[in-house]
Design a protein around this nucleic acid. Sequence first.
RNA 1: GCGCCUGUAGCUCAGCAGGAUAGAGCAACUGACUUCUAAUCAGUGGGUCGGGGGUUCGAAUCCUCCCAGGCGCGCCA
Length: 555
Amino acid sequence: MKQDTVEIIRNALKGLKNRWGTEALPRIEVEIPRNGSMGDIATTVAMRLTKSLRKPPREIAAEIVEKIKEQQPDMFESVETAGPGFINFRFSREFLLKSLAGLLQKGRHALRTDTGKGRRIQVEFVSANPTGPLHVGHGRGAAVGDALCNILKAAGFDVQKEFYINDAGLQVRLLGESVFARYRQLTGNNVPFPEDGYRGAYIESIAKEIHDRYGDRYREETFEECGEFFTGYAYRMMLAAIEKDLRDFGVVFDRWQSERELYSQGKVKEALDELRSKGLLYEKDGATWFRSSRFGDDKDRVVIKQDGEYTYFASDISYHRYKLQRGFDTIIDIWGADHHGYVPRIRSVLEAFDLPPDKFRVILIQMVSLLRHGEPVQMSKRAGEFITLREVMDEVGADITRFIFLTRRADSHLDFDIDIAKEQSAENPVFYVQYAFARISSLFRQASERGLGSGDTETGEADLTLLSENEEISIIKKLFQYIMVLEGAAHSCEPHRITYYLQELAGMFHAYYYKHRIISGDDKLSRARLCLCRGVHIVLEDGLGLIGVSAPERM
RNA sequence: GCGCCUGUAGCUCAGCAGGAUAGAGCAACUGACUUCUAAUCAGUGGGUCGGGGGUUCGAAUCCUCCCAGGCGCGCCA
């Protein structure tokens, strides 16, 4: 619908090119007017041309309108200039009804777009340290990342979802040490608990599991002797727990990349060698530095420390180089907002490896504050006291949690009130949308009992021209805005736009349902209206699918 | 000190890639259930878009300065 409109405008502009004597045509942008009475879709192209043509925008708009009318597009009922130089289009009823019929025939396939053109995108998200359970912040990252990937796929991109496992550093060793210390307590042969060790209860349960299985076998050994066992055991358990939490949250990754593997496969050394050959590494004060300042970073960064150890940044360099080697056109990293200082650094790396700057995007996820009865829940990571994603999921449910995570832009703070989330009330927008879907499902059940079909064109054989109420036409228009919203969400990497759209569509449906009877004594009209309901049903289901929320048949 | 993010209705937030008269939900108030699911609907009030300057045909949106809040500024991970 958008594409068709743009095409018609482009044709008109081409037709006017000679008269205007211009070479390049401007980008044709269409938008949905704020006020529906202005039109269904509008373009500002005339105003954009005013500078190069040195003519008043209204005059240009009038010329374009005239040219468009020469094409006699049956899509539109009217095309007119308005305001400072807008061109407003109003879709014809025939076109809208034909589009609805198309949607019913093709189903969700009609809702795909190909702005991605199969380009390959890699999205890395969550990437939590495997040293403890996922917390709510990770959950938000997971919800945003997963929804974004669904959206990008629906927009025609070839997407890979990846989780990067920081399994090489000190943190994982510290996890092993913490478990070891707890284990020793169980054997009655205490060792000091590591400073900065992990103190959560999950550490104790891992220690207990080891003790249950192996008894006092490691009672007398030092951590140097059996640390590998403890670290490996604890790490595998944590990773398995993380994977399970994510799966239960509805998030499944295509690939898990281990940091340690980057080392063992020599990729870190390779990456640094390449930088060195490009003259981007140098030695100073006994350390090796990367010239990130050459690419806009504040200062150069150390990659190999004085003691000969690699920094965390070194493996990150190799990781991002490896992403590029795997042939992705675009790299998207989703991080907690507290890591924003890292952006220029990684950007430098990708530029050093010749990725154009616009092919790398970072989405920063702002903090989630958990509330209960409006009061903040105290959390202390050091003491291991924090609410996990698992707890929230178990208490309020995955659907609600995911939806709420997507009711805000990723980069704005989110207050998550557990009590309000649990309440099945009007305060809870999830139900509002799901209820619209369930309501329609219920209509279909009743319709089929009465032999009316359920709005499928095959069984319905409905006469769509019976759809003549204002609300009906408005809903049809809204259905076809879905694709524009999808494209916008993909372009801007903002999944929350889908969430807002769904609330609007659900709202329009609820109002329509209340005002007009769907299944009435008039079978023909009932069939037509069921078709409209089917359209809404399809779009709601698709949109909920994108944000990873279920579409229940009953509530 | 430097950098990034945020500041829009009483509250929580949208506002799409500069566009037309700045929106929604909640709260408040007034109404609607013998009805296809009231987890719903109709209506009312509510704004100096943090502030100043600039760019332009046009700014909540872009630039700049200031104010307020948050987060970062390691040879930690």
